[in-house]
């Protein structure tokens, strides 16, 4: 799998649930170092492994070239353009009401993945990959296409503040 190189590019590894056994057709966890050597990638990878921040059973259908394993390119400039402190959590909360029609705040993820409690960088990266149509879910591509960097950053900031509840 090709991963663009350069100092402004990093990759985030997206996997299914680490702790649970996965169906054969889900993306499987592999060592991120095969794909990218940056500190960010390693940190994200470890976060995902230890905290399971990108929760399970949500790895949706992808193009053949992106199917297991998946590396999502992430531009440093995109994230650094919107510092965490300046991200508009209130705007994100409003925008999140578009997400909660499908994505449950309880963290329940059957059929539709949970998106709460993700770190902001992962959230931004995944939305970017939908926007670029690198991930295949049409509904998510459409929602992502309707949002600019400001909206995605605000959403990411808001969802990062949430914890599963039931």
């Amino acid at each position: 799998m090709a991963v663009a190189e350069g100092e402004h590019a990093a990759a985030i590894f997206i996997s299914g649930p680490i702790a649970k056994p996965e169906p054969a057709n889900h993306c499987r966890a592999v060592d991120m170092k095969e794909f990218i050597g940056s500190d960010l990638a390693n940190r994200q990878h470890c976060d995902a492994r230890t905290n399971n921040k990108i929760s399970g059973h949500w790895v949706e259908r992808m193009t053949a070239s992106l199917r297991a394993p998946v590396a999502v390119l992430l531009s440093w400039s995109l994230i650094s353009a919107v510092p965490a402190a300046a991200q508009d959590v209130a705007y994100g909360e409003y925008l999140s009401s578009q997400c909660t029609t499908c994505h449950q705040l309880s963290g329940k993820d059957k059929g539709i993945p949970s998106i709460i409690g993700w770190d902001t960088e992962s959230f931004v990266a995944v939305m970017g990959s939908y926007k670029r149509k690198e991930r295949e879910n049409q509904a998510m591509q459409t929602i992502a296409a309707s949002m600019g960097d400001e909206e995605i950053a605000a959403l990411a900031a808001y969802f990062a503040t949430l914890k599963p509840k039931e």
Binding site: C102, G111, A139
Partner: peptide, 13 residues
Amino acid sequence: EESVGWYDGISKD
């Protein structure tokens, strides 16, 4: 399966 997840989600919403 996504539609089933959506039904559950929108019902809660």
